Simulated assay, not measured.
Amino acid sequence: MSNAWHQRLATARDARLQEQRWRIRHVNSRESVNFASNDYLGLAHDPRVQAAQAEGARRFGAGAGASHLVSGHLGIHDDLEEALAAWTGRQRALLFSTGYMANLGVLQALGDRHTAIFQDRLNHASLLDGATLSGARSRRYHHQDSDDLERLLESSPNPYKLVVSDGVFSMDGDVADVSALAQLSQRHGAWLMIDDAHGLGVLGEQGSGCTESLTSQDVPILVGTLGKALGTAGAFVAGDAALIEHITQFARSYIYTTAQPPCIAAATLAALTIVQHEPAHRQRLQQHIAYFRQQAAQLGLPVAASYTPIQPLLLGDEARVMTWAARLSQSGIQVGAIRPPTVPNGGARLRITLSARHHRRDIDRLLEGLSRCQREDALCHTQ
């Protein structure tokens, strides 16, 4: 590299270090109790899912070897797409290698200068980036504020309107009012796109997410990831046949990348069968959520109003977040330490995620660790 490039990298590094926002990868220890994972149902460790992946690798190979539109699309991919479409009540589904690529691909394929995209301010970065990539006019409405969204829709002259929202917001754990968004979108001739990455497998009587009671007419575009409650990797987009065919033809992040490994598709089919036929995993998870919230309230911990597995502890101060996370880590407890720019300024938090794989003793251990952090903070302030 030239000296100019080295200087540019050093300047960016120094600025991030000065802000005390430098990110570090941590190697997850098997001895620690993990409250930072999105493996909500514990299926990443289910022996049946692991066995299906191993058998899939033996039958189909470890990798697909090419893109879906060249030679990488196998029968196991077809089987998974059909199963996902049926599960979500859509005509068709289309596999992507990651959730980020799915959101980029959909928005890039649908958006152009004639399109207006309206997004919740707290949408995932992949949705915000996808709108930018699309070349469409993009507006962001206040979080969960239907009145603000309606104001923006009414003032838009664009002939094609697309409303986009997370189903479950990944940093706050609150759930979008999808029914209200659907009604508002239909009233203004807009399509609605929901990214239910953190709801699929967790919400709904059948575990099919926050759109379970809604039709494809209400939510024409549904995105889901496979690497969270389903415990594998990849993502999909579900909708009617015309939508899926359009995305297949025009989404660059679908066309120009290697297909999902077939062994992952096999593992996902096994995980999906478990989700559909074993509701005990969801029930156990809901019991954990209720117990954690009840105990946290008794301790006076600043837990956000979330009834999903995502339980943010809103500490506000970034240094305090990092101190609490370090103390917990020393006790063998791993939590997510989330700071700006991932969340707004002043919104630093511990992002605690619960899983059906946890035991009550694990949650008690976490609560004791949080209570200890709270006591140590109080001691510091009285000295």
Rank of each mutant, 00 (worst) to 15 (best):
Thr342Arg: 09
Ala109Phe: 00
Gly173Trp: 03
Ser253Gly: 09
Arg16Trp: 09
Gly63Val: 13
Thr257Ser: 14
Val70Cys: 10
Phe292Pro: 05
Ser329Val: 05
Leu313Ala: 11
Pro344Tyr: 01
Ala229Ile: 15
Cys373Ser: 13
Arg365Thr: 15
Ala10Gln: 15
Ser32Tyr: 03
His381Ile: 06
Asp145Gln: 07
Met171Tyr: 06
Gly72Tyr: 03
Leu110His: 00
Glu318Ile: 06
Leu127Arg: 02
Leu350Tyr: 11
Arg360Gly: 09
Ser208Phe: 07
Gly105His: 00
Ala85Phe: 01
Met101Thr: 14
Leu315Ile: 13
Ala190Ser: 06
Asp39Arg: 03
Ala180Ser: 11
Ala12Trp: 04
Pro261Ile: 03
Gly72Gln: 03
Arg113Gly: 02
Gly173Val: 03
Gln311Tyr: 05
His142Pro: 01
Gly209Thr: 09
Leu84Tyr: 10
Ala10Ser: 14
His277Tyr: 09
Arg21Thr: 08
Ala251Gly: 05
Thr273Lys: 11
Ser97Tyr: 11
Lys228Tyr: 08
Gly316Lys: 03
Leu152Gln: 15
Pro47Phe: 02
Gln108Ile: 00
Ser2Asn: 10
Gly300Ile: 01
Ile333Asp: 04
His281Ala: 07
Asp364Lys: 05
Val49Tyr: 02
Asp79Asn: 06
Glu212Gly: 08
Ala238Glu: 05
Glu154Val: 14
Gln334His: 05
Gln7Gly: 10
Thr268Trp: 03
Ala233Asp: 13
Ala378Pro: 03
Ala66Gly: 14
Ala356Met: 04
Leu367Cys: 15
His359Phe: 09
Ser208His: 12
Ser329Thr: 12
Arg361Asn: 12
Gly105Thr: 00
Leu200Trp: 10
Gly75Val: 07
Thr323Glu: 12
Arg339Ala: 12
Glu82Asp: 14
Arg90Asp: 07
Thr342Asn: 13
Leu128Gly: 14
Ser216Ile: 02
Gln286Glu: 14
Gln334Lys: 07
Gln334Asp: 11
Pro47Met: 06
Ala4Gly: 12
Gly173Ile: 03
Arg113Leu: 00
Ala136Ser: 02
Gln50Ser: 09
Gln374Cys: 10
